[in-house]
Simulated assay, not measured.
Amino acid sequence: MTRLFWVVFATSMAVYLAMALWTVPHLAALTDGQMILDMRPTGYSHAEVVDYLAALGDDGRAFYLTVQHRLDLAYPALLAASFGIGFAILYAGWLRWGLIAAAVLGMVADYSENAHVATILHSAVEAVSVEMVQSASFWTLVKSGADSLCYMALLIGGGLALIARWKRRG
Rank of each mutant, 00 (worst) to 15 (best):
L95V: 11
A146V: 09
L56E: 06
M107L: 09
D51H: 05
A102Y: 00
W6Q: 09
A28Q: 15
V108E: 06
V67I: 13
R40N: 13
G33F: 10
L71T: 12
D58T: 13
K167Q: 13
S123N: 09
L56Y: 03
T2Q: 14
Y44T: 13
H69I: 01
I120G: 11
Y111N: 11
G57S: 08
Y151A: 03
W22Y: 14
M107E: 06
N114E: 09
M1Q: 10
A101S: 01
A55Y: 04
V125L: 07
L17S: 12
A88M: 10
L65Q: 12
L37M: 10
P25T: 14
T23W: 04
A55F: 02
V133N: 00
V130K: 05
W22Q: 11
R96L: 06
M13A: 15
M13C: 12
F9S: 02
T42G: 04
A10N: 13
W94S: 01
A54Q: 07
K143Y: 03
L141R: 12
L17G: 11
M152L: 07
P76Y: 03
I36F: 01
D51R: 09
Q68I: 08
R169A: 13
F83S: 02
L73D: 11
V50R: 09
T119I: 01
L4V: 05
V104R: 07
T2S: 12
R165F: 14
W6N: 10
T2K: 11
V125A: 12
R96I: 05
A109Y: 12
G93Y: 08
V15R: 13
